[in-house]
Computed example of a mutant assay.
Amino acid sequence: MNIAALRHVVENNPELIEGNVPARGNPAAAIGVAKFLVGNNGNVEALSENQRYHYENYIRPLVENVQCSGVFGPEDEDGNDGCVGNGRIDDEDLDGCYLLDEMLCQECQALQTRMQDD
């Protein structure tokens, strides 16, 4: 788990977690679990079964194995995803992606920079 990314989401954009919770779910509980994890340095072992459910379903997708949104958008005109890399954001880049509000892998970031420079 990328604890720096989770801290950023909890402190600056908890709506991302709320948006992962279905209408019949409990977004406040998911936010509470996220805050608990931040306060306990990401110690998932300290979670109860119910808390772990919230983590696995609503929080983990935001801090592990996060999908690149693609430099050409989530889908191009041919129906392909717009990522030019492996489709996933490297863990060490995730916090920066949340800071910049650009969910791009390294390859897509490099291509975007080259396109902007041209």
Score class of each variant (00 low, 15 high):
I3D: 02
I59S: 08
A29P: 01
D93M: 11
R60V: 06
V84R: 13
N57K: 15
A46R: 06
G96L: 11
I17M: 00
V44R: 09
C105T: 07
D118Q: 13
G87P: 07
E11R: 08
G25H: 08
E75V: 15
H8Q: 11
L6D: 01
R114C: 04
I31S: 01
N20D: 10
N80D: 15
N41E: 13
E102T: 02
V33F: 08
E56P: 03
G32C: 09
V9F: 00
D76R: 13
E56D: 15
N57R: 15
G19Q: 05
C83F: 00
I17F: 00
E49P: 02
N57C: 09
D93L: 15
R24W: 10
Y53G: 09
Y58R: 06
N65A: 12
I3W: 01
L47W: 03
I89Q: 01
P14Q: 10
N57M: 14
Y53K: 15
V84M: 14
L104V: 09
A29C: 03
V10P: 05
C68S: 03
N41D: 14
P27H: 03
Q116P: 02
R114A: 14
G39L: 04
N12F: 11
C68D: 01
G42R: 09
Q51F: 06
G39P: 03
G19Y: 03
S48K: 13
N43D: 15
E77I: 10
Q67M: 08
L104R: 11
A4T: 05
E45K: 14
G87F: 04
I17N: 00
E15Q: 14
Q112T: 07
V38T: 11
G42A: 10
M103C: 04
I31E: 00
D118F: 07
E45V: 11
E102G: 02
F36M: 11
A5Q: 09
G25V: 10
G42E: 13
F72N: 13
G70F: 13
G85L: 02
L47T: 05
Y53D: 14
C83W: 00
S69E: 15
N40Y: 07
D76M: 02
I17A: 00
E49H: 06
V10W: 10
N65I: 03
C68T: 03
V9E: 00
Y55V: 07
Q67S: 13
G79M: 10
D78G: 04
C108M: 06
N13E: 15
N57D: 12
L100S: 12
D90G: 01
D78S: 05
Y55L: 08
A46H: 06
N12G: 04
R114E: 15
D90S: 00
G39T: 05
V9T: 01
L37P: 01
V21E: 05
Y53C: 06
R52T: 09
G96T: 12
